[in-house]
Amino acid sequence: MTGAIGVVMAEYGTRYYLRPPHGGCEWDAPRTDIRPATVTDRIRPALNEANTRSSTGGVL
């Protein structure tokens, strides 16, 4: 997953195992590909949803 936000569930060797913040399927990524989420990273999904809702008249 590229650009995904996840909660670190475990670390094994050089890989992190992450899960979406509100649950879902776990995935793994190399330690070198992981960084702390910025404020912008955290609010982007909610902003995208609000923009979609406003452009579709409230229907998703």
Rank of each mutant, 00 (worst) to 15 (best):
D41G: 00
R15P: 05
V59P: 08
L60F: 13
D41E: 00
A50W: 03
I5P: 07
N51K: 06
P36T: 09
V39S: 02
T38D: 00
R44C: 02
G57I: 10
S54V: 15
L47H: 13
G57M: 13
R15F: 11
Y16P: 09
C25N: 10
S55N: 05
G23N: 01
V8T: 08
T32P: 04
V7F: 00
P45D: 02
T38G: 03
G6C: 14
C25E: 10
R44P: 06
I43Y: 11
V8K: 04
P45M: 12
A37C: 13
A4C: 14
T32Y: 03
S54N: 07
A10R: 00
V7D: 11
P21W: 00
W27S: 13
Y12G: 07
L60R: 10
S55V: 07
G13S: 06
R19L: 02
R19P: 00
R35L: 14
R31S: 15
I43G: 01
S54R: 07
T40F: 01
M9C: 06
A4N: 09
L60W: 10
P45H: 09
P20W: 05
R44A: 14
T38L: 05
T40H: 00
R35G: 10
L60K: 08
I43P: 02
D33Q: 08
Y16C: 13
R44F: 06
R15M: 13
S55Y: 04
R15S: 12
I43W: 08
A29K: 06
P36N: 10
V7G: 06
V39T: 03
G23Q: 01
V39R: 04
R42D: 00
D41Q: 01
A46S: 14
I34P: 08
E11F: 08
Y17G: 02
M9D: 02
D33T: 04
G57R: 06
T14K: 05
R44T: 07
T38H: 01
L47S: 12
R42S: 00
G23T: 02
H22L: 04
S54P: 02
Y12F: 10
G58H: 05
A4M: 13
D33A: 08
L47K: 15
W27F: 14
M1P: 15
D33I: 01
G23L: 00
P36I: 08
I5Y: 07
T40G: 00
R31A: 15
R31F: 02
I5M: 07
D28I: 07
C25A: 12
G23K: 00
M9E: 04
L60M: 11
T14C: 05
V39Q: 05
Y16L: 15
P30K: 09
P21T: 06
Y12I: 12
R44K: 14
D28H: 09
G13N: 10
T38C: 02
P20E: 10
D33V: 03
R53F: 12
P30M: 10
P20D: 11
V59R: 13
P30A: 14
A10I: 07
I34F: 04
G3Q: 07
I34H: 05
P30I: 09
A10G: 04
P21Y: 01
R35T: 15
N51G: 06
G3C: 08
W27A: 11
A46C: 06
Y17L: 01
L47V: 15
Y16M: 13
Y16E: 06
R31D: 15
V7K: 11
A29V: 15
Y17M: 05
P30H: 11
G57Y: 00
I34D: 09
R19A: 04
D33W: 05
S54H: 07
